[in-house]
Design a protein around this nucleic acid. Structure first.
Length: 270
DNA sequence: ATGTAAACCTGTGCGC
DNA sequence: TGCGCACAGGTTTACA
């Protein structure tokens, strides 16, 4: 479910409230993607210094060490001073002096992993291969162009791979490619510099816009304060197979790429 | 090295 | 109403 915008919106909804809080207890439910990697008791008494984001990971900085949180396909966080008893899909509670942070994740593709530092092997394994932050300064047109021209993958799959640029998932890849007028099946290295620049700008624009709209709440996503996003109402092609393109009226198509569905307008995107 | 598919797990919607 | 299947916002791992 969550791509960069949803994770960033979640981060913003908890960062202020949880900063400086002390960890009082931790509860784990059913197993997630990976084990926590330490005794939960080890973290009790530590402070949550701040919350950062790297790609689709949230990084809870503790006084010592950090906790990596990934929402997988169906995860969402809640942060509140009083939460109801955990239901069967609530698999992690972090009780702090400022409130409880709770991971709700029916499919359990999400993860909560402790690392001593970002140099900890587990952190390197999870974060080490990640590409550029699309909303950060290091995401330069030059670096993006170089990466695109070096890949023989279809451009959609290159974006999803996360090795060049992070945070672009299935929704925003389709949306950015529509915005740039590029068909998802085009080989990355065949794109002209002009089209690469259009895509570069589209990625930044679509992600920025999605964050501003609170992310996409397709099924049940909500940020940690319970508010839902609105980007799903601004979607141009994602999930709109067989419906008319808003720009030209041509029927939106769906194609299967790497076990994921891609949506595009055959007239607007070449 | 690269490209494709299976795997992880649960819920939902659809055709019959 | 029930059953079986396809599919769902992600990522790693295994295997050609």
């Amino acid at each position: 479910m969550p791509e960069l915008p949803e994770v960033e919106v979640t981060r913003r909804s908890i960062a202020h409230g949880i900063a400086g809080a002390q960890i009082l207890s931790m509860r784990l439910g059913k197993p997630l993607r990976w084990p926590l990697g330490c005794d939960p008791e080890l973290l009790v008494g530590r402070a949550v210094v701040g919350v950062r984001r790297r790609g689709k990971y949230l990084l809870l900085d503790l006084g010592q060490g950090l906790v990596l949180v990934h929402l997988g396909m169906s995860g969402s966080l809640r942060f509140a001073s009083a939460l109801p008893p955990p239901d069967k899909h609530d698999h992690w509670d972090l009780e702090t002096s400022a409130g409880t942070l709770r991971l709700h994740d029916p499919r359990r593709f999400g993860a909560v992993v402790y690392a001593e530092s970002e140099l900890d092997p587990v952190a390197v394994k999870l974060l080490g291969g990640l590409g550029m932050e699309p909303l950060g300064d290091v995401f330069s047109l030059e670096a993006f162009r170089k990466g695109v021209k070096a890949s023989r993958l279809p451009i959609k799959q290159l974006l999803l791979a996360g090795r060049l640029v992070v945070g672009v998932g299935n929704i925003y890849a389709s949306e950015a490619l529509f915005m740039a007028g590029i068909r998802p099946t085009v080989k990355a290295l065949s794109l002209s510099s002009v089209r690469i620049e259009r895509l570069y700008l589209a990625i930044r624009e679509v992600l920025t816009r999605a964050v501003a709209l609170g992310g996409s709440s397709l099924k049940d996503f909500s940020s940690a304060d319970g508010s839902t996003g609105h980007f799903q109402n601004a979607v141009q092609v994602y999930g709109r197979v067989a419906e008319p393109c808003y720009a030209c009226g041509t029927t939106v198509r769906m194609v299967r790429q790497g076990q994921r569905s891609s949506f595009y307008c055959p007239r607007c995107q070449r």
